[in-house]
């Protein structure tokens, strides 16, 4: 019996012992891996809601050749490897990666609703978040306030493409919870 087709492709997991992540003073994430220096990398979560700490794709984001015409099918900005689990990294690196991911997946956490107004097909929110007071607008109707992942996290998407989150819906202040429940 030959091996399963699933096994015919390897995932390049990044060895936590070999990888050295760093954030430069200019706020760029860099990586040194197996003797290669990557001056600019990005992290993409494979499962941002259901498994945010595992299977994180580390991607080369060096734009220095942006004007060169590449050969078709040979994309330079490729995946360097995949982080199997953030917990495999030491505390210092983990902090760097968490900080980067928080910025990439930018979604202020709502603490409470200050006011909500509905008019002409749109809902106007003023909320207190961990980043300060935010005002934003969402469309009425489905898909703007949704539960994701295990079901206790709520994401709110505004008309401009901004995101707001309630990391633990069951823990939020009850008045806010009741208000938001009506929109889900």
């Amino acid at each position: 019996m030959s091996e399963s087709i699933i096994d015919s492709v390897d995932i390049d997991y990044i060895d936590p012992k070999e990888a050295k992540f760093n954030i430069t003073e200019n706020h760029i994430l860099t990586l040194d891996l197996n003797g290669v220096h990557y001056p600019c990398v990005q992290l993409h979560r494979s499962f941002p809601f259901t498994n945010p700490d595992q299977y994180i794709s580390v991607r080369d984001d060096d734009d220095s050749d942006k004007d060169e015409v590449r050969e078709i099918g040979n994309d330079k900005k490729k995946e360097i490897g995949i982080i199997r689990d953030l917990n495999e990294f030491d505390a210092v690196t983990r902090k760097i990666l968490d900080k980067y991911l928080e910025l990439r997946y930018f979604a202020p956490a709502i603490i409470r609703i200050i006011s909500i107004r509905e008019e002409f097909g749109y809902r106007y929110w003023t909320v207190e978040t961990d980043k300060g007071v935010c005002k934003f607008t969402t469309r009425l109707g489905r898909g703007t306030v949704v539960t994701v992942g295990s079901g206790d996290k709520v994401m709110i998407y505004d008309v401009d493409g901004n995101r707001f989150q309630i990391p633990s819906f069951s823990q939020i202040e009850s008045k806010t919870r009741k208000q938001i429940e009506m929109f889900m």
Binding site: Y105, F106, A107
Partner: peptide, 8 residues
């Protein structure tokens, strides 16, 4: 990015 953007 997701929910924000920056100038590099």
């Amino acid at each position: 990015m997701v929910g924000n953007a920056y100038i590099k």
